[in-house]
Simulated assay, not measured.
Amino acid sequence: MINTVYQLVAPRRFEIKYSDIDLNNNKVIVRPTYLSICNADQRYYQGLRDAEILRKKLPMALIHEAIGEVVRDPSGNFKTGELVVMVPNTPVEEDDIIAENYLRSSKFRASGFDGFMQEYVEITPDRLVRLPQDIDRTVAAFTEIVSVSVHAIGRFDKIAHKRRNVIGIWGDGNLGYITAVFFKTMFPETKLYIFGVNPDKLQDFTFADATFTVEHIPEDVKIDHAFECVGGAGSGKAINQIIDYINPEGTISILGVSEYPVPINTRMVLEKGLRIFGSSRSGVADFEKTVALYKSNPEIINYLSNIVGAVVPVRTIEDMKKAFEMDIQKAFGKTIMMWDK
């Protein structure tokens, strides 16, 4: 079976590659239907990664946030036409201590091998999670980034001490919003404060107990634990501000990705006895928990629909470029490609 793969071969340049899918193995064939553009995809598309990394990684099909319909499953786990979310993390070993998304041997789609910008995806059944057929598919498309937040909140619950009167989330972008939605769902009795830079974006956090711009935080504000969802050049400032406002022995969960080392105030980390931990990517269990939360708390889908930005029908390479260029210009939200291949 011939498959069409749409690879990024150089910044802002996609080309078609044809590959052969072996129908004699036990892998599932999925047709991608809705794909979500992530900041990591944009760093490759715009050539913002280190030149040596680009040389090693490209050519490569982008996108690790996607859903699709099952075309064929010889294992019998899924029926033809079923809606599934595809898990990009692909472990090659198991470890009793280290989760699949932290094993250095694990592969990750759109970061080392082809992502979901393909006509068909060949994937093992254990990398698929069944979705409700009636789910909003533009929201379901970015389940991967949602599962990262769910994963981080789960780790927080295991690591942080039990005094959780007030939790702070730094970051008013997509990651901050998603983390806030799920934290409030999972810990409804805990007060949730949001710290951001854009007053208009902060207005979208209607479920939070309070919002603050980072330039105007009252001196008497104190938090027990915090999540950093800023990333990039603002990571350092956000982490250091958290260190200033967090109570002693609090826990800081870092989710924001920065391309460069970030200086932090280690003196106050020591004086306050703080715990800092990072979370990245997710595994099948996190996807399953995320979908379970979708089902048990349908209001989550309504909240997440607020960050669906442009929905771009994609049939050609020019359509793909259009979607990525539109995504660069967005002020907020997720750009979704409605994949008609």
Rank of each mutant, 00 (worst) to 15 (best):
V121N: 00
E52M: 14
D20G: 15
Q241T: 14
T206R: 13
I67R: 13
R127A: 04
D126T: 12
S105D: 12
T266G: 13
D73V: 12
C38G: 00
S36T: 00
P11T: 02
M60H: 01
Y260P: 03
P32F: 01
N3F: 02
T143K: 03
P32K: 03
S111M: 13
T316D: 03
T251G: 07
Q241Y: 08
D200F: 07
A180Q: 12
Y120F: 14
L103W: 07
H151K: 11
Y45M: 02
P263F: 04
V221P: 00
I21T: 09
L62I: 13
P218R: 09
D20I: 12
D50C: 01
K295T: 14
R164W: 04
Q329M: 15
S75N: 12
P218L: 05
I276K: 09
I135T: 09
K184M: 05
F116V: 00
T211D: 02
Y45F: 13
D41A: 04
A141H: 08
E189F: 12
V230G: 04
N306A: 03
T266F: 10
N77R: 15
K334I: 14
P188E: 05
G278F: 07
R155H: 13
R267F: 12
S36C: 06
N26T: 08
K162F: 13
K79V: 12
T213V: 09
P74R: 05
G256Y: 03
A323D: 15
I252G: 03
V221L: 08
E69Q: 14
A233H: 04
E271L: 15
I307G: 01
E82K: 11
P32W: 05
Y260L: 14
I67V: 14
V129K: 07
V5C: 10
K158T: 08
K334V: 13
G81P: 06
T143C: 07
I63T: 05
S105I: 13
S106E: 01
P298C: 07
Q46P: 01
F187Q: 08
Y245V: 02
D224V: 04
M326F: 09
T179N: 09
K201G: 01
A51R: 15
Y18E: 15
E119P: 00
Y34D: 00
P248I: 04
D327N: 15
V148I: 15
S235M: 10
R130E: 07
F324Y: 10
T90L: 12
E271K: 14
H151L: 10
A40I: 08
T206L: 09
I29H: 02
H64A: 00
Q241I: 04
H225G: 06
E259N: 12
F195T: 09
R49M: 13
D224I: 00
K295R: 14
A310S: 15
L58A: 07
M186C: 01
N174P: 01
R109F: 05
G76K: 06
A208Q: 00
R104F: 14
F212V: 03
D134C: 02
N302P: 03
G283F: 06
R130M: 09
L23K: 07
F324T: 01
K272R: 07
V284Y: 09
N174Q: 09
M268T: 13
G81C: 06
A51P: 08
V312Q: 12
N297G: 00
G68Y: 11
K107S: 09
Q133A: 15
F156S: 01
V230E: 03
N24D: 14
A210P: 05
D126A: 04
V84F: 02
A310Q: 13
I159K: 13
